[in-house]
Design a protein around this nucleic acid. Sequence first.
DNA 1: TTAGATTTGTCAAAAAATGACAAGTCTTAT
DNA 2: ATAAGACTTGTCATTTTTTGACAAATCTAA
Lengths: 106, 106
Amino acid sequence: MKTTFGEYIRLLRNENELTLTQLAAKLNLDSANLSKIENGKRDFDEKRLPKLAKIFKLNLTELRNEYVTDQIGKQIYETNCTKQLLQVAEEKAEYRRTLNKSLQTQ
Amino acid sequence: MKTTFGEYIRLLRNENELTLTQLAAKLNLDSANLSKIENGKRDFDEKRLPKLAKIFKLNLTELRNEYVTDQIGKQIYETNCTKQLLQVAEEKAEYRRTLNKSLQTQ
DNA sequence: TTAGATTTGTCAAAAAATGACAAGTCTTAT
DNA sequence: ATAAGACTTGTCATTTTTTGACAAATCTAA
């Protein structure tokens, strides 16, 4: 999925022929805010992922992957992180994992 | 640099034989909070990067790279983002760049 | 035009991050 | 043993950021 999470929601909504108002109601939010989410002017609140998965009968884990990759992609974009630096970031994530592991053994 | 940003600050501080209190004063913050930063219990505030660079005579761009890779590494870690998903995230960042470019031409 | 759909602006409320202080632990020198 | 300095931890008020809601605007198709 090479779109933003907002565009992805819009896609799902259109495929299922729902209006902003209709989907927003199912998600317990305002149509104005859902509009902003679809247009990338606000973030989708992670706590609504289970609801979103249910509405469109999606696998929650896969949906969360879409969400996470969108969030990280956004940060990569906003920080102008190059591929080279991203490699470094990945190594640092790995380092945190080892830190956490050694914490567990203690 | 395969450490957290907090550990990096501690390293710099020790190399220069400063106490928490001394460095904190130079950074305009409390030694208690600097301690938390070094121990990864709080984030270093990005707006202090220029000050930090000046104190230790570091290149600001390189320091910011350390900071950015730490932040993204942290997010990768916290979201359990696999390498495969990170690849997707990178593609999504690229997509955002193209979005932004087409916006500019209009 | 009119109705429904969507977008935009604004603002108060909620949530998260930050700064500051007090009190605690740990280490080292005397 | 204890006194001093370095560091850590807990807490809380303040600040900043994010979110939800409403009103008003624009857009689109009948």
